[in-house]
Amino acid sequence: MSLIAVASTNINPGLKSIGYGLSAIGPGIGVGIVFGQGVNAIARQPELTSTIRTNMLLGFAFSEALALIGLVAPFIYTS
C-alpha cells in the first residue's frame, strides 16, 4: 500500500496529464456515439423526438460522468 502511495507522489506530473488525456478518449467516443445514434434515430422516427432526446441526454450525462471522474480523481491522492 505504501509503495503505491510513494509511486503516486513520485510520478512525473507530465505523465499524469497524459493519463487524463487517455482516460478522456473513452467518454469522447461514447458521447459521439450517443449523439450520432440519437440524431439517426430522430431522423428515422421524428414523432418520437422527445423520448429519444430524453434517453440521449441520459446517455450523454452518464458517459460524460466518466470524464469528470478522471477530472476529480487527482484530489483523492493529494493529502
Binding site: F60, L68, V72
Partner: peptide, 20 residues
C-alpha cells in the same frame, strides 16, 4: 422543447460535477 434540451445538455454535466 429545443430550449429545454439545450439547457439540459449544459446542465447535466454541471450537476454531476457539483455532486462530486
Amino acid at each position: 422543447q429545443d430550449r429545454e434540451f439545450a439547457n439540459a445538455v449544459s446542465a447535466a454535466p454541471a450537476t454531476i460535477l457539483a455532486g462530486m
